[in-house]
Structures are given as C-alpha cells and as structure tokens.
C-alpha cells in the first residue's frame, strides 16, 4: 500500500518532469529535467524492488545513482569549446 502510493506519486512527478523535458526552451532546461528524472527513476526502481518484495534490485538503482551524473556532465562539457588535447587544469585554479 505504502509503496504503491509512493510509486504513483513518483509517476505523477515524472510526468510533470517529462513536460519540462519536452517543452524546455533551452538545452539546460531539458538537462535539468533529465537529471531530476534520473533521481526519480532511481527512487522508482528502489520502490519497485520493495513493492515486489525483492529489494535486491537496488544494484540497478545504485548504478543509476552513479551514472546519471555522468550524462549531465557530458552534456555540459558539450557546451565548452572543443579543446581536446589540452585537458590541463592547474591544481590551484578555481
């Protein structure tokens, strides 16, 4: 019961996020929506594991929690000017 309610709330939140992902005027809006969608998917997978009485599924949620970040960073790096050979940052650069 509890998990079903949480799952439905998550689906509603995902739908609203999806609206922003489709409508977002800039790529950053879409990216924000995707990032937030990823967090909600992590939760949904975790809740679904409990809902079906098989919480071992958390491995997938964990891998999403780790990898979702990578996609966001990759798209943001796309906005930087290409400078592939000089990936150098000084240590004390902020």
């Amino acid at each position: 019961m509890l998990f079903s309610v949480i799952a439905i709330a998550l689906l509603v939140a995902m739908l609203l996020t999806l609206v922003r992902a489709l409508a977002g005027p800039t790529a950053f809006d879409r990216l924000l929506a995707v990032n937030s969608f990823g967090t909600k998917t992590v939760l949904l997978i975790a809740v679904a594991g409990f809902l079906m009485g098989r919480p071992e599924f958390l491995d997938i949620a964990l891998s999403y929690a780790l990898i979702n970040f990578l996609g966001t960073v990759a798209v943001l790096k796309y906005f930087e000017l290409p400078d592939p050979d000089s990936g150098h940052y000084a240590e004390d650069d902020y």
Partner: peptide, 26 residues
C-alpha cells in the same frame, strides 16, 4: 534540435530501465 534529442534519449533509456525492472528483467 539534435542536442535535445540526445538528452531525451537519455530519458528514454531511464524509463526503459525502470520498465524492465518492474517487468522483472533485472
């Protein structure tokens, strides 16, 4: 906008993975 399409493909795979989990295809 192809960049937006790429970002949306990320969402696509998120949803697909969620559906696979619920369908027990872990």
């Amino acid at each position: 906008d192809l960049l937006a399409a790429v970002i949306l493909l990320g969402v696509y795979s998120l949803i697909a993975a969620g559906a696979f989990v619920v369908m027990d295809a872990v």
